[in-house]
Amino acid sequence: MSFVPIVCGKKDWDKQYDQSTQYSSLYCPNCHNFNVHPVKRREFISIWFIPVFPIFIGKQLVCPTCNWRQDFKNDEQLQKVVREQQNIRQGKTGG
Rank of each mutant, 00 (worst) to 15 (best):
M1Q: 09
M1C: 08
P5M: 04
I6N: 07
C8A: 10
C8S: 11
G9H: 04
K11Y: 05
K11V: 12
D12A: 05
D12P: 07
W13F: 05
W13C: 04
W13T: 07
D14N: 08
D14W: 08
D14Q: 06
D14G: 06
K15A: 12
Y17F: 14
Y17T: 04
D18A: 07
D18I: 02
D18N: 12
Q19S: 13
Q19M: 06
Q19K: 13
S20N: 14
T21M: 09
T21Y: 10
T21K: 14
Q22T: 13
S24H: 11
S24D: 07
S24F: 06
S25Q: 10
S25E: 08
S25Y: 06
S25D: 11
L26K: 02
Y27W: 09
Y27L: 02
Y27V: 04
Y27N: 02
C28W: 00
N30E: 09
N30V: 08
N30T: 10
C31H: 12
C31F: 15
H32F: 14
N33C: 09
P38S: 05
P38Y: 02
P38K: 02
P38I: 01
R41D: 03
R41Q: 08
R41M: 05
E43G: 15
F44Y: 15
F44Q: 03
I45A: 04
S46R: 14
S46E: 14
F49I: 13
V52Q: 03
V52M: 10
V52A: 05
V52D: 02
V52T: 11
F53C: 10
P54H: 11
P54M: 09
I55F: 14
F56G: 05
F56R: 13
I57G: 06
I57S: 08
I57Y: 12
G58D: 06
G58V: 06
G58A: 08
K59D: 09
K59S: 13
Q60I: 10
Q60F: 12
L61P: 11
L61S: 07
L61A: 05
V62E: 15
V62N: 11
C63G: 00
C63D: 00
C63L: 00
P64R: 02
T65F: 06
T65E: 08
T65P: 02
C66D: 01
C66W: 00
C66P: 00
C66L: 01
N67F: 15
W68K: 01
W68E: 03
R69M: 08
R69I: 06
Q70C: 06
Q70H: 11
Q70S: 07
D71F: 04
D71E: 10
F72L: 00
N74T: 03
D75N: 11
D75L: 00
E76C: 00
E76M: 00
Q77R: 03
Q77I: 04
K80V: 08
V81L: 13
V81T: 03
V81Q: 07
V81G: 01
V81S: 03
V82G: 00
R83Y: 15
R83W: 13
R83G: 12
E84C: 09
E84D: 15
Q85P: 06
Q85N: 15
Q86E: 12
Q86D: 08
I88L: 12
R89G: 01
R89C: 01
Q90C: 08
Q90M: 10
Q90S: 14
Q90R: 14
Q90A: 15
G91S: 10
G91I: 07
K92A: 10
K92L: 11
K92I: 14
T93E: 12
G94E: 13
G95L: 01
G95N: 07
G95R: 02
